[in-house]
Design a protein around this nucleic acid. Structure first.
Lengths: 208, 208
DNA sequence: CAAAGATTTAACCACTTGGTTGAAAAAAAT
DNA sequence: ATTTTTTTCAACCAAGTGGTTAAATCTTTG
C-alpha cells in the first residue's frame, strides 16, 4: 500500500504520473466521459496499479477537482476581496485571469459541467476552501459611483460582466472558431488581444 | 413500424412524448449522461417502445440536437446578418436572446458540452443549416467607427463580448447562485434585470 | 369483424466498465 | 541477502446499458 496517502504526490513519482494523466483527461472529458483505462494508458501503467494508488475513480477525480479549484479560487478571491483601487484591480484581474485560462483552457468548462451534473460531489471537493466574498468589490463600486468617478451600474452585474467577458470565449471556443473561421494560431492571438480589448471595453463602459 | 419516419412528430402523439422527454433529459445531462430508461420513464412508456420509434440512442439524440440548433441559429443569424441600424440591432438581440435562453436555460451548456465532446457528431447535426456569416455586422461596426458614432473597437471582439454577456450567466448560474447567494426566484429577477443592464453596458462602452 | 398498427411485458444478449484478485517479477530499502 | 514495496499480468466479477426479440394485448381503422 502507498505510504504517503493524502499528501501531495512527489514529482516524478508514479503517483504524480497518474495524477497528471488523470488531470489531463478528467478536465477535458469530465468524470463520466473518462475511463480508468484511458488514464492508465496515458500514465503508461496498467489498471491494477491505478487502483493501487487511488482506490476508486471517485477518489482520483476528487484529487483532480481539488487541484483545479485550488488554482482558480485565489484569482477570483483577489477580484472580490483585494484592496487595490477598483480600476487597477479590474485591469489586473482581466489580464491575469485570461492568462491563467489560456494556460488551462479546459478548466472553466470542467468546473461548470461538473457543478451542473453533480453539485453535491463538487462542492464537497471545494472544502475547506471558503467561498470568496464579493462585498468589498461591491462597496468599492458604490463608492466610485457616489464620487462620480464611474457611471452608475449595478455592482453585481458589473462583476458578472467582467467574469463573463474573460471566461466565456474559452468555453465557446470551438463554436467561435467555426463562426469566425480561425485556426489554432489565430485563436491564441485573439485571446491575447482580448486582454487589452476587454479591459478597454469595461473601462469605457464605466466612464461617467 | 412507425409510418411517419423523419417528419415532425404530431402533437400529443407518443412520438412527440418521447421527443419531449428526450429533449428535457438530453439537454440537461448530455448524451453520455442520459439513459434510455430515464427517457422512457419520463415519457411514461417502456424501453421497447422507445426503440420502436427511434431505433437508436444516436438517432434520438440527433433529432433533439437538430431541434435545439434550429431554435438557436436564427437569433444569431439576426445579429450577424440583419440590416437594421447597429444600436437598434444590439438592443433587440440582447433582449431577445436573454429571453430565449431564460426559457431554455440548459441549451447553451448543452451545445457547448456536446461540441467539446463530439465535434464531428454535432456539426453533422447542424447540416443543412449554413453558418451565419458575420460580415454584415463587421461592416456596420466599421462604418459607425468611421463616422465617429461609436468608439473604435474590434468588431470581432465586440461580437464576442455581446454574446458572452448574454450567454455566460446562464452557463455559470449554479456557481453564481452560490457566490451571490441567490435563490431561484432572485435568479430569475437577476436575469430579467440583465436585459437592461447589459444593453446599457454595451452601449456605454461604445460611446465615442 | 378483421387486419394493421401501437404498446406492454419480460426475458435475453453483447458489450463496456469499475474494480478485484492472486501470483509472479522487478525494484528499493533494510 | 532478505525483506518490503512497487509493478505487471491475466483472468475474472458484478453491474449497468443499449438494444433485441417474441409473444400477448390493446387500439385504431378499414
Amino acid at each position: 500500500m502507498n505510504k504517503r496517502d493524502g499528501l501531495q504526490p512527489l514529482p516524478d513519482s508514479t503517483e504524480q504520473k497518474i495524477f497528471d494523466a488523470a488531470h489531463e483527461i478528467f478536465t477535458q472529458k469530465g468524470m463520466d466521459g473518462t475511463k480508468m483505462q484511458e488514464i492508465a494508458d496515458l500514465a503508461g501503467i496498467n489498471k491494477a496499479l491505478l487502483h493501487y494508488y487511488y482506490r476508486t475513480k471517485e477518489k482520483l477525480f476528487e484529487a483532480v477537482a481539488k487541484a483545479v479549484i485550488d488554482k482558480a479560487v485565489p484569482v477570483i478571491r483577489q477580484l472580490f476581496e483585494g484592496e487595490q483601487p477598483l480600476q487597477e484591480k479590474i485591469r489586473y484581474f482581466i489580464d491575469f485571469y485570461i492568462s491563467l485560462i489560456s494556460r488551462n483552457p479546459f478548466i472553466p468548462l470542467f468546473i461548470i459541467s461538473e457543478i451542473n451534473k453533480h453539485p453535491d460531489r463538487f462542492f464537497e471537493a471545494m472544502f475547506p476552501q471558503d467561498m470568496p466574498r464579493p462585498e468589498i468589490f461591491f462597496k468599492q463600486v458604490q463608492i466610485e459611483i457616489a464620487e462620480r468617478r464611474i457611471r452608475p451600474v449595478s455592482p453585481k452585474h458589473l462583476m458578472v460582466n467582467i467574469i463573463s467577458l474573460c471566461v466565456f470565449p474559452f468555453i465557446g471556443k470551438p463554436m467561435m472558431r467555426l463562426v469566425l473561421g480561425m485556426g489554432t494560431g489565430e485563436m491564441r492571438v485573439f485571446m491575447e488581444e482580448r486582454k487589452a480589448e476587454v479591459t478597454s471595453f469595461v473601462l469605457a463602459a464605466l466612464r461617467p
